[in-house]
């Protein structure tokens, strides 16, 4: 599988190239946005790791937008801490995920695998009608949820949110995306609805963050992500 790395820092390009080659990927590297666009067109990589802040030419967000005009190649953006607005913009521009610098190679590898898996799986229905994570089991066919074997009752909205998140494990679902899917597009900016419902869902799922027993993860200022155990 071929991955394109786009970063204006030569050191980072070199490290990522070495690391990803070590995991057995073929790696291309581009130093700026124009080179990246050319390489995607000519070499057709299967995934792009794209830094949001590029030194010159179009920045990462712009490259992402232009790529989405003609390509469905999975894109993972690299961003820095505290840059939530840019992260939201990246997702809006069509990025599949983002990773905050500094990160470890293991983390990048896990994200790459998750994004690729989703890209392959998404067009069809989930292979299983029952999603199992830890003590949680969601029977999609019968709309039944159990925690440690005990059935838990959810309201229709709560169930819809849980199902939406659980059927996209590891994928960031922005607050507006959840609102649009469950209540309709006209509710897209009522983000506090989502928080109140997710709070309720978490209690019913008997999450215990202090022991890291969690199914729904926070993406501050962006949205939620269902835990990806694959």
């Amino acid at each position: 599988m071929m991955i394109l790395i786009v970063d204006d820092e030569p050191q980072i390009r070199k490290l990522l190239t070495t690391g990803l080659k070590g995991y057995g990927y073929d790696v291309l590297a581009a130093a700026d946005g124009n080179e990246a666009l050319t390489l995607v067109a000519q070499r057709r990589p299967e995934l792009v790791v794209l830094d949001i802040h590029l030194g010159q030419g179009p920045d990462g967000l712009e490259v992402c937008r232009r790529l989405r005009e003609w390509s469905r190649v999975p894109i993972i953006m690299l961003s820095v801490r505290g840059d939530e607005r840019t992260k939201v913009q990246a997702l809006d521009a069509g990025a599949d995920d983002y990773l905050t610098k500094p990160f470890g190679m293991e983390e990048l590898r896990a994200r790459i695998q998750a994004v690729v898996r989703r890209a392959v799986a998404e067009p069809g229905a989930p292979p299983d009608s029952v999603i199992r994570v830890g003590a949680l089991a969601i029977d999609l066919a019968n709309r039944r949820v159990t925690v440690a074997g005990e059935e838990v009752h959810f309201t229709p909205q709560e169930y819809d949110i849980l199902r939406l998140l659980a059927t996209h494990p590891g994928k960031i679902m922005t607050h507006p995306a959840i609102l649009s899917a469950v209540w309709g597009p006209e509710y897209a900016d009522m983000t506090h609805y989502v928080r109140i419902y997710v709070n309720q869902i978490r209690k019913k799922l008997r999450e215990n963050p202090a022991a890291n027993v969690r199914y729904i993860l926070n993406e501050p200022g962006v949205g939620y992500r269902f835990i990806d155990t694959a």
Binding site: H192, R195, N199, P209, N212, N218
Partner: peptide, 14 residues
């Protein structure tokens, strides 16, 4: 934004 403090505390605890 409107946030749940319990959610924030959960992140810290995790």
């Amino acid at each position: 934004d409107w946030n749940s403090l319990e959610e924030i505390a959960g992140d810290v605890a995790a």
